[in-house]
């Protein structure tokens, strides 16, 4: 797996955007700004997914993460009307937390660079498999070929991982019911009980 040319440029662009916005996110004073910046990070990540030909995941990322979860976040932020934080700079927590995460980062990078020295990543990449040619239709452009990513994921999702899939659905259901129960007001409970 090697990205060269414009793809590499795009990778660095998206990566820098993701990291920068992530840093901005954890330092933003307003929660809404945090959410917005997180959205940017997530969208950049979706771009990275496109870069490695995970189109479906990219779509799901935007549809669910950005369109669903983050909207929910913003919704809640507005509901609870969170005030801007007065960041007490250099509190003990901030100091210790910063130092620790610094060490964590150093450690992770060390591991990654160390393993790179071995032959873990230097395996020769075979050529990517040919994408299947679509049907021969004059109304499609001659070079029309379409990724099979979604089809493949669909096939695997509903055959090999059908049990986890069902479990995930159940988890979602439970989460929905739980959230409704949690967020219901007492008055509403009184009405419905």
């Amino acid at each position: 797996m090697k990205l060269v040319g414009l793809e590499a440029v795009l990778f660095y662009l998206l990566a820098v955007v993701a990291i920068l916005f992530a840093i901005f996110m954890i330092t933003a004073r307003s929660a809404v700004h945090s959410a917005l910046l997180l959205i940017s990070t997530l969208v950049a990540t979706a771009g990275l997914y496109l870069l490695v030909h995970a189109e479906f995941v990219a779509g799901v990322q935007i549809l669910i993460y950005v369109g669903g979860v983050l909207v929910l976040f913003i919704f809640v932020i507005m509901l609870v009307n969170a005030k801007e934080e007065d960041n007490k700079m250099f509190t003990r927590q901030l100091l210790i937390g910063g130092a620790l995460t610094f060490f964590l980062g150093l450690g992770i990078i060390a591991i990654l660079l160390q393993t790179q020295k071995g032959n873990f990543f230097t395996l020769a990449s075979p050529a990517p498999p040919k994408i299947e040619q679509a049907q021969n239709n004059p109304n499609l452009s001659p070079s029309h070929n379409i990724s099979q990513n979604t089809i493949k994921i669909g096939q695997e999702l509903y055959t090999k991982t059908v049990l986890p899939f069902e479990i995930a659905s159940l988890v979602l259901l439970v989460a929905i019911i739980g959230a409704v129960r949690l967020a219901r007001e007492r008055k509403q409970e009184k009405i419905y009980d």
Binding site: G97, L104, G107, I109, A110, Q114
Partner: peptide
Amino acid sequence: LVMVVGLVLIIIGLEYQAIQELY
């Protein structure tokens, strides 16, 4: 924080050699 401390310790413990070599 305590969790992260543990994480750091695990990383140091597991990959001490790598860290040592790099830094």
